[in-house]
Every structure is written in structure tokens, then in C-alpha cells.
Design a protein around this nucleic acid. Structure first.
Lengths: 207, 207
DNA sequence: CCGAAAACGTAATATCAATTACGGATACGG
DNA sequence: CCGTATCCGTAATTGATATTACGTTTTCGG
């Protein structure tokens, strides 16, 4: 199969998986269902991906790419650092609590070998962290935040933004978030950061 | 079986499960393994708990009790609100990222019916939230925090304390936390709260 | 156009763990 | 002390799904 066709086919297969996820969550993604939905054969799935974990690993990689793309596009907007932080926060939170991320997390839990977990960790490190770092550096340069401790600030911001929403989502303690909740949370995280890391605040060494 | 004996037996069974969890994590907890380890029969397990989810549900309940007990004991100590917040934070974080909580979370993920998820949510609401609220009220009364918005403060504190550690732990992105990391995180959360909710700070309406 | 390699669709196999069944041992109320 | 209800240990059953096998069809380089 020509490489071009092959890439197309890979995309179709992964799209099929995402469709299954949207419809029935992680539990709906069986190899049989994927094959039927994508019009591919089981033999092909195993030839290309090795096993089910491999399939999800490639999903993680693709998802990381998409996240990076989306965040980069947003980071390129011409808005002030405050608005930017809010904007990025909303996008990020929306993705991380959405059905796809939930399914990928469930897959990592089900894996057990830690393989998918590592992939997820790597995706976060490579796709999300650098972008967030960029935004914070810009905010610092713009006089909104202290110039040192940008990493701490980014870390605190992510904690406030995401908190325990992901684990609660994955364990079924809560359902999908509504946009208002997302917006409120993003604002709260941003405003807290602005206070904690104000350039000339009375912050102690720790803040 | 006399009720007294029965309670004893229930405890033995649940202890057996925790032993299995410590040794091999959630995946090691099969009904067979539980029966053998506890010296109980499968028939008895099913008679008493209904099914595997029921078994874990009772584990969640018991765990909630133990958490409540431990936190209450700590909350009774004669220390200032600042030290108290740090102390409670460490205990809480230690438990929530420990092998038992991880296993219970994995069970909730594997459940799918949402039954265990609801149990976990209820446990958090009933066992953890009230204690935290008490501590924050005391801190407010002691002049450390603003008198209004205690609930927000508690929520922010928990987000900062726990963040995404649980999901990363459950997905295998990270291993057990070492005590130093726990201590550092607890302090960071406390200090942030003190700054954000200072009684006479320049905090806006949101903080 | 030809033939091999790859892909398709379906059926078969393998595995793992929950759940159920059952014969023999035990406990306990009367 | 006895009979019955409960429990124990082990084996059988069941269900779901990942993984493999295979005959047929399609694709594609030569």
C-alpha cells in the first residue's frame, strides 16, 4: 500500500476509534468493533499496531499532536497575557475532561504494564508543558508575573485548573463539564496565579 | 453465625483484600485470590457482598470511616491553624496517593456502572469535606483567613494539594510519592491559601 | 495483464476472571 | 446431643475479548 494511502487508512482507523469512544466510551472500543467500524480486518490492525496497547499508544501520540496544534493556534492570537491565560485554560480543561482524554486515561488504567501511562506522561510533557511555559514566560515579560519561578507558577496554575477533575471524571464521579464551569475554573486559576506571583507582591520566598 | 463473629469475619476478608492490594495492586484482587487469602469460600463472598462491586463498595465505606477517624484524630491536636493545615494536608495526600486509594480508584474505573464512582464521591463528601471545612472555619476564626468564602478556600486548597496526582498515579504515570514531596506539596498549598485568602489582603471579590 | 503481497471478512482459539454448583465439614440453637 | 443452616474447598460454567487462522478478494509493481 502506498505510503500516502496508508496514512489515510491509519487516520480512518483512528477516526473510527474516536467515533466509538464518543458513542460508548472506552468500553465500546473492542478490536472487533474497531475493525468493523473502520472496515479493516483484525489481521491488519494487528499487523500495523502490534496489539491493543499499541493501538492506543498511537492514539495518544496523535492526540498529543492535536492538542499541541490547538494550543499553538490559540497561543498565536493577539491578546494580552491575562486573556491568553484564560483562553488557553479553557481549551486545555475542555480537552482534558472530554470523552477522548477520558477514554485514553481509562485505557492507561486498564493497561497495567505502565506502557500507556508512560506514553501519556510523555505526551503531557512534550505537548502541553512547553506551550504553557511559553505563555507564562510571555506573561512574565509583560510584567504580569514575577520573572523568576515561572515553572512553579505554571505548575500551580495547572493544579488549580485541573485539580481532581480528571480522576473524578474517569472514575465516573462526575459527568462532562459544562462550559460555564470550565470558564469559571479557568478564571479562578488565572486570578489566583496573578495574585500569588504578582511581581511586587508581599509574597514570601515560596511565592 | 453470631453477629460478633460475623463482623470479625468481614474485617478479616477486607484485611485480606488490602493485603492483596499492597502486594499486587488492584489486578491482584480476584475473587479467587480473596477467598483463598481470607480462608473464605466464594459462596460466602457472594452471599455477603452480592458481587465484586459490592465487595469494593464495602471497602470504600470502610476506608471512608478510617479516613474520617484519622483526620479527626489529627484535627483534635493542640496546634495552631497553620500547622494544622499542613498536618492534615500531609495525611490526606499520603492516603489519597497510597496503594489502597489507588486500587479503589482503579476498581471504580473498571466498574463502568458508575456505582463505585458514586460510592467514592459520597465517601469524599461525607468523610473528607466536613473535616476540611472544620479546619478552615477554625483558621478563619483564628484570624488567618477571611471569614467569608471558606468553602472556596477549602476547594482551592484541595486542588493545590492533590492536583492531578491521583490520575497520574492511577494511570501509572508516576509511582508512590516520597514523604518529602508530600511535605513540600502540603506546605505549598497552605502557603498559597494563606496568601489568597488573607483577611485584609488586596484580594478582589474573587479572592 | 500477472502474480505475489497485503487486506478483507469471518470463524476459530485462547485466556482470564466472575459467577455458580456441590459434596463434605462445622457451628449453633433447641 | 441432633439436625439444619452456614461455611469451606474445589471444580465446573459462563461470558467477554484479545489474538490467531484462513480462504477469498483487492492492490500494485513489473
Amino acid at each position: 500500500m502506498r505510503d500516502e494511502k496508508r496514512q489515510e487508512r491509519l487516520r480512518q482507523i483512528e477516526d473510527a476509534i474516536y467515533a466509538l469512544i464518543e458513542e460508548g466510551g472506552f468500553e465500546a472500543v473492542t478490536m472487533q468493533a474497531v475493525a468493523k467500524r473502520a472496515g479493516a480486518s483484525l489481521e491488519t490492525l494487528y499487523r500495523w499496531y502490534g496489539d491493543k496497547v499499541g493501538l492506543f499508544r498511537s492514539l495518544v501520540d496523535r492526540n498529543a499532536e492535536e492538542v499541541k496544534t490547538l494550543l499553538t493556534a490559540n497561543a498565536a492570537e493577539e491578546v494580552g497575557p491575562l486573556a491568553m491565560l484564560d483562553r488557553i485554560g479553557q481549551r486545555l480543561l475542555s480537552m482534558l475532561t472530554g470523552p477522548r482524554a477520558v477514554a485514553l486515561n481509562k485505557a492507561a488504567v486498564a493497561d497495567g504494564s505502565g506502557d500507556l501511562g508512560r506514553a501519556l506522561a510523555g505526551a503531557g510533557r512534550d505537548a502541553v508543558a512547553p506551550l504553557v511555559a511559553t505563555v507564562f514566560k510571555r506573561a512574565a515579560a509583560g510584567g504580569i508575573l514575577r520573572l523568576d519561578r515561572e515553572e512553579d507558577a505554571a505548575d500551580v496554575w495547572l493544579s488549580l485548573l485541573i485539580g481532581d477533575l480528571q480522576i473524578r471524571r474517569v472514575t465516573g464521579q462526575i459527568g462532562p463539564l459544562d462550559p460555564n464551569a470550565i470558564a469559571a475554573r479557568s478564571l479562578r486559576a488565572r486570578d489566583a496565579i496573578v495574585l500569588l506571583y504578582h511581581p511586587d507582591g508581599r509574597s514570601s520566598a515560596a511565592f
